[in-house]
Amino acid sequence: MSDRETFNDIFDEDPPLSPALASAIESLRVDEPVSAEWRQSLIAGVESARRTQRFQRRLIGAAGLAAAAAVCAVLARPSNRGVISVGNANTVHFEIEAPAARSVSLVGDFDGWNPGAMPLRKRGNGAWVVDVHLPPGRHAFAFSVDGRLTIDPTAALSADDNFGVPSSVVVVKGEGGE
């Protein structure tokens, strides 16, 4: 491979050269009597600088990934605290703390997973509540907080979820109460 080809390869490779390095390389294109030894030392220097550039890029990429993972972990963490209690006549009290939410509704197999069917009402302390009469049995449910599904962190999780997104579970026995 000729020196000229080697120089062109350096320009074509990724990552692109910094302006200073590009300028230094470009100067070698001038047909001046330059010794082969000097050319080789310059090429070695460019390769070394490029390795440093690649390492820095990988480091920045890894740091970015770590930061993104941390943000995802924080976002995925349930920030709302829920309460379920089952009273007389199978009336189940659902409650979730979501002070910043604009709307919260209850969705589950008892309302056809319809976000508009069972809205919760907001209390002054930032808690959202609703009382629902449920038949005996196991009921999968979730809260829809501003349109985003949120499980109840205090309830058991459904073991037979088919869609990769967990649901909470409440069990209502015949004469009321879990």
Partner: peptide
């Protein structure tokens, strides 16, 4: 079940 899947984005 189908409605649950739709709501969960399956």
């Amino acid at each position: 079940k189908a409605a649950e899947g739709v709501l969960k984005g399956a």
